[in-house]
């Protein structure tokens, strides 16, 4: 079983207030630390578990600037057999362009694989399109929001995908296929700093993304960045704890849910 896993290095923005530069020209990420996209971490763990069980090889691939090597080293430390960087100026913003580059890379370099794993979405752009778009170009079967892999069979895999309202769908897909993996599918193992240091000794291959971009340009353009529209704000109850609590109980009473 050979699995390709696509990984993205993203800004760690959860605890930050993001600043927009100038008149909406760009988002300032200069003070933010970077990390592996959370969803991709689950995808990577799931791929490694699959080959630990079924045998085979995980190849971690990242599209982006040279710093994306960080996530490849981490992947190797976690258990991937190989790390590959498709080097570009930056991670391509247009989901179409990104998937086209990845698909051409896979075809041109002649990878032999049973499955491609991606995270459901990236924390930064939240397009949630990479796996699906790639599967579409490659004309491979696709399942998204996978929350469990139940069985690797001969030429197929049985998975569960997450729907709304706690409902799940059981799906059988033939291999090779593309699966996008949802968070919570597993508990990713810890990767230590010393593990990453050891992994650094394994060479990561670098391919130039320009090799796969001939005749294709970005199909979307950001004209402006803006802050979310401020909705009519909430009525703020008093700042002292006791006053706020008493007013809160009064509201609950008025609404008829609490005496």
């Amino acid at each position: 079983m050979n699995i390709l896993v696509f990984l993205k290095r993203v800004a760690s923005s959860q605890e930050e207030e993001l600043k927009i530069l100038g008149e909406g020209e760009a988002v300032d990420l200069s003070r933010l630390p970077f990390k592996l996209n959370d969803w991709d971490n689950y995808a990577l763990e799931e791929a490694i578990r699959a080959v630990e069980k079924e045998g085979g090889h995980v190849i971690a691939i990242s599209l982006g600037a040279k710093e994306s090597d960080d996530v490849l080293r981490r992947a190797i430390a976690m258990g991937a057999g190989e790390g590959i960087l498709i080097l570009g100026e930056e991670a391509l913003f247009d989901p179409r362009l990104r998937a086209i580059v990845a698909s051409r890379f896979i075809k041109k370099e002649g990878f032999n694989f049973d499955a491609i794993f991606t995270g459901v979405q990236a924390e930064d752009d939240q397009f949630g399109t990479f796996g699906g778009y790639l599967a579409g170009i490659l004309e491979l079967p696709y399942v998204s929001m996978v929350v469990a892999i139940e069985e690797w069979g001969k030429g197929y895999v049985l998975v569960r995908r997450e729907l709304e309202g706690g409902l799940m769908e059981k799906v059988k897909v033939s291999l090779p296929s593309v699966l996008s993996i949802q968070t919570g599918i597993n508990e990713p193992r810890y990767v230590s700093v010393m593990g990453i240091r050891r992994a650094s000794q394994i060479e990561r291959k670098i391919y130039e993304s320009s090799l796969y971009m001939e005749g294709v340009i970005s199909s979307i353009e950001v004209l402006k960045w803006s802050y979310p529209p401020k909705k009519e704000g909430a009525k703020i109850l008093p700042y002292d704890i006791d006053g706020a609590c008493r007013e809160l109980l009064q509201i609950l009473k008025e609404r008829g849910v609490c005496q």
Partner: peptide
Amino acid sequence: ASSSGMEIAPYVAGYLKSPIITD
């Protein structure tokens, strides 16, 4: 942008190589 749309839209877009914007 539901569990169905999020799955189908990029797949169809990829198949047809169309531009896509989600959410």
